[in-house]
């Protein structure tokens, strides 16, 4: 079964871009447009890897990652942060929240796919 990736990003262009790149890499793609929406998706879906933005309305990436980790069954679900933030403090916050990896966008689709393969069991 192919790897399922949940992308959480408020930018439609970025979501479309991610979907396009990830489908091309043979992944299956779920999409959500912010943290809350991401949690809703997780109620019914079990992706292998989550790729999330940080700056989003309603629930940002930090809150989203924390919420994912709070669920016992999702503690080992890899969450990659894909963001324009380059600030060390934000990165540390994401790591403290339980982010598996940190990728600065604009992203290189090949590197992203590599990173997903690296963390996906």
């Amino acid at each position: 079964m192919s790897t399922i990736v949940l992308t959480v990003d408020d930018s439609r262009a970025m979501r479309d871009m991610l979907r396009h790149s990830l489908l091309a890499a043979g992944f299956r793609v779920l999409q959500a447009e912010d943290g809350l929406h991401g949690l809703e998706v997780l109620e019914t879906e079990r992706p292998d890897v989550i790729v999330t933005d940080i700056n989003m309305p309603r629930m940002d990436g930090f809150g989203f990652i924390e919420a994912v980790r709070r669920d016992e069954t999702r503690r080992s679900m890899p969450v990659l942060v894909l963001t324009t933030e380059v600030d060390a403090e934000k990165k540390n916050r994401a790591r403290a929240a339980g982010a598996t990896g940190w990728i600065v966008k604009p992203f290189d689709p090949i590197k992203l796919v590599e990173a997903i393969r690296r963390v996906a069991a």
């Binding site: 192919s2 779920l30 447009e33 929406h37």
Partner: peptide
């Protein structure tokens, strides 16, 4: 939840 599985990629919209 938005599902854009590859199989449905054509029809699914965000």
């Amino acid at each position: 939840p938005v599902e854009t599985m590859a199989a449905k990629a054509e029809s699914a919209a965000a």
